[in-house]
């Protein structure tokens, strides 16, 4: 049985996204030049959404016979 590559991609990006967004939320790391942009939080969410899409694609195609 082969592994659907979308599973590891999905899970890794969900995990990375959650960690980076969580860190951005808690630690509020300073951006460049006093920019108020919390890029960790924003990009963490983007990563997590991508991860979720990948994982759900894998889940959907796994259920098909």
């Amino acid at each position: 049985m082969k592994l659907d590559i979308r599973w590891p991609i999905g899970i890794l990006f969900l995990l990375f996204g959650a960690l980076i967004a969580g860190y951005g939320l808690l630690a509020q790391p300073a951006g460049v030049g006093g920019d108020s942009l919390n890029i960790d939080l924003m990009w963490g969410v983007v990563l997590a959404v991508f991860g979720a899409v990948m994982a759900s694609l894998a889940a959907v195609s796994g259920r098909r016979p």
């Binding site: 960690l19 980076i20 790391p29 460049v32």
Partner: peptide, 11 residues
Amino acid sequence: GHYFPNGLLGL
């Protein structure tokens, strides 16, 4: 190093 805060830096 210039643009990324820790977190994104790890990525």
